[in-house]
Design a protein around this nucleic acid. Structure first.
Length: 152
DNA sequence: AATACGATTGTCT
DNA sequence: GACAATCGTATTC
């Protein structure tokens, strides 16, 4: 229902902004793998690496539609708690044949693009509209300033 | 070796 | 709106 794009190393909001470190190594790895990190000493967050090795970009998963054993999880920390994802899953492949992907037919009619959450420290990059959300109630926070894209 | 802080959430005012 | 919880990283000394 909601994701955010992190386009480091130019993106000041991205962990990879400051280059390759032990933590961000997964972001520099091949696409289709999970980048899981610990935030505030409490919460895990999961991303999908999106670009070929060497291009440290990823998509943060922020909200899912509840159901099929997934609890209500409005926000990246609660999402990982619901799916029991922690850093032990960092770097695992999210593509077949390691993972079965099921197309449930869901196609959002509307996708909004708005500023990312919790990146006020990112200077000029904080207002980039790289938070993408459906109009579902199951988003981490209300979508305020909105540009719209047509869905698929 | 020491320090500052975070891609969050819940609670209290 | 303010703030605590809690610890791995990255940065600084």
């Amino acid at each position: 229902m909601e994701v955010e794009a992190y386009l480091g190393p130019d993106d000041r909001a991205a962990h990879s902004f400051r280059g390759l470190t032990p933590r961000t190594a997964t972001m520099y790895g091949p696409p289709g793998h999970a980048y899981v990190y610990l935030i505030y000493g409490i919460w895990n967050c999961v991303n999908v690496v999106t670009r070929p090795a060497g291009e440290p970009q990823a998509i943060l998963l922020r909200a899912l539609e509840p159901g099929l054993g997934v609890d209500r999880c409005n926000g990246p920390g609660l999402l990982c708690r619901s799916l029991e994802i922690d850093r032990s899953s960092n770097g695992i492949p999210l593509t077949p044949p390691d993972l079965y992907l099921i197309d449930d037919g869901f196609r959002p009619a509307v996708i909004t693009a708005s500023p990312r959450i919790g990146v006020d420290y990112a200077g000029d990059w904080k207002d980039r509209p790289w938070r993408f959300a459906t109009d579902s109630a199951h988003v981490s926070k209300p979508v305020l300033a909105v540009s719209r894209r047509s869905g698929g």
